[in-house]
Design a protein around this nucleic acid. Structure first.
Lengths: 134, 134
DNA sequence: TTGTAAATGCAACTCGGTTGCATTTATATT
DNA sequence: AATATAAATGCAACCGAGTTGCATTTACAA
């Protein structure tokens, strides 16, 4: 994806092309794993305001440019792209060694037998293990 | 489970029988769904110190009296009993209407095909839907 | 009964995340 | 190119979950 495309991506989603947003997109695009707020702060050392960052993460998420991941670490992480399996949730892999979070193409399983009266809408899955780098 | 048993449960786990702990156990036992810190604070109006509460939640968890649940709400919740499926993780059901979290006996599925070099250890599952009460 | 380690309560703190508001900036309009 | 306007930014102040250090109290064993 080229610089020009980032601009188009923003325009297409009705978001203004600002310095902060371009920096953010550029950063997300070339990463294969999810980033938390503090990861982002550390990586983008340039003056980057906390609330500006959070507000942009939110609007990017709403625009489908990134998606929010909840591994079970207590802090939200974000990765480039909409949920790969449109609408539905894809699984996330958390490395128990380096804590890195990867998006898996593996779809969540369909069937879970819940008790009488319970209705299943969707299933979210976290896979824990060791990643290829560790 | 009777009062006397609570005491035995604590002794057996090497935990001293204190007022706070008895109150906590008593509270957890007769609940069918998970409690967050603020749920507990609200329910146990009696003077209950924040750090004491957290420290007890931690030791109860280590002792296997309760287990910690991470639905994707951002706050940890706790429910009575060890993970029903010994060692392995059981699924948790989050009601999208009342936000209540229930433990499901349903085991997590075995097979997820992860990329080359990735090794799966365990799978954690959150089922979202509508509970029997809603 | 008393000694001791563990449990409690309190205050102060960290950190993720949010909100209100004044200032700045992107962009559409002239 | 100048300008009007709504949106984006930066800042400070705030909230709530969870943690830590420390002095005091309590359970329990000797």
């Amino acid at each position: 994806m080229k610089e020009v495309d980032y601009k188009q991506l923003l325009e297409q989603k009705g978001l203004k092309k600002t310095k902060v947003r371009m920096t953010l997109i550029r950063h997300f695009v070339h990463l294969d794993h999810a980033q938390s707020y503090s990861d982002l702060q550390a990586a983008l050392v340039k003056e980057l305001d906390k609330s500006t960052l959070y507000r942009n993460l939110t609007s990017f998420e709403q625009a489908g440019i990134i998606h929010r991941i909840n591994d079970h670490s207590g802090v939200a992480k974000y990765a480039f792209g909409e949920s790969p399996i449109e609408g539905d949730d894809h699984a996330h892999f958390v490395c128990e060694c380096c804590e890195t979070v990867y998006c898996m193409e593996t779809p969540a399983p369909g069937e879970f037998n819940v008790p009488e009266g319970f209705k299943t809408n969707k299933v979210q899955t976290i896979i824990r293990g060791i990643c290829a780098d560790c």
